[in-house]
Computed example of a mutant assay.
Amino acid sequence: MPPIVKNLLKIAAVVIVVVLLFKLHWALGTGVVVVSIGVFVFLNRSALYAQRGNMAYMKGDQAKALELLEKANGFKRVVPQHRIGYGFLLMKAGKPEEAERVFQEIQRLSPPREILMQARINLSTAYWLQGRHSESLALMEEVMGEYKNTLAYGNLGYFKVLNGDLEEALVLNQEAYEFNDNDVTILDNLAQNYYLLGRVEEAADMYAKVMDKSPKHAESYYFYALTLQKLGRLEEAREQSEKAISRDLALVTPLTRADLERLEEQLKQADPDHESRDEGPLAGESSIDRG
């Protein structure tokens, strides 16, 4: 019998019992309902904490999300997906060693294959953040050998680009594009790959597709700005550089805020009208209003 059918039968049985008890006496029915709710809450405390954590993360409160998912992870009945979410937030908080332990523990629990692969993909990111690049790449190669999906293509393709294996990365990223030409990470990997190989026209075409998806992180706009700069499209490059400055860097990145600021300043200096635009009455005062 399918699990969903079993669960529906259990719910139906509980409803029948409650209805019969209410017919006998309202207090009996009320008591059973109260106790059932209490038992449900007690048994599902980890899920409730995890749900609150996910809501906090969606609101941008990463510290609160981590706190709540840490509590969820402390219960024995926590589901593997919530453990993965906890490990991800640990990496975002700059704690890849702790995240590694979480992902290793998930593997020891022998979860379903899809969850196991998600844990291993995240583990490869934890390795990368610790500077263990060869281990990260080796693990992703193992994953790709038995489980090809969009997330795996995206991670391995990006790591190969960051590792400087550009020709090898290109083969993989083109394969990934054939697998899913609608995923922003795959598009971004291929665009950056083309740029780093000096194939700027192809990079520009691919970045145009990336921009259609409004990427979240600064790296996309930064490398698109560099591409446009190479093509002599300086006004467009300045626009993309400004967008890069206004966005956060990704979890795994080759850039710093200083890189973004340096490009912005370089493109400003390349603007023949830059000096005249900075000579307005408030030009000397605007720089202090950055906090």
Rank of each mutant, 00 (worst) to 15 (best):
E175R: 08
E175D: 15
Y177P: 01
N180V: 11
N182S: 15
V184L: 12
T185G: 04
I186S: 03
L187M: 14
N189S: 12
L190A: 05
Q192V: 15
Y194F: 15
Y194P: 05
Y195R: 08
L197F: 09
L197G: 05
G198M: 07
G198A: 10
R199Q: 15
R199S: 11
R199N: 13
R199P: 05
A203S: 15
A204V: 09
D205I: 07
Y207Q: 03
Y207T: 03
K209M: 09
V210T: 04
M211Y: 03
D212C: 06
D212I: 09
D212P: 00
S214A: 12
H217M: 07
H217A: 05
A218I: 02
E219V: 10
S220H: 09
Y221K: 04
Y222E: 01
F223S: 03
F223C: 10
Y224F: 11
A225M: 04
L226W: 05
T227R: 02
L228R: 05
Q229I: 00
K230S: 14
K230V: 08
L231D: 08
G232C: 05
G232M: 06
L234Y: 13
E235G: 09
E235I: 06
E236L: 09
E236P: 01
A237M: 07
Q240E: 13
E242D: 13
K243A: 00
K243L: 01
A244W: 03
S246F: 00
R247F: 05
R247V: 01
D248H: 09
A250P: 06
A250E: 14
L251P: 04
T253Q: 08
L255S: 01
T256N: 08
D259I: 07
E261P: 02
E261A: 13
R262E: 15
E264F: 12
E265R: 15
E265M: 12
E265L: 14
K268A: 05
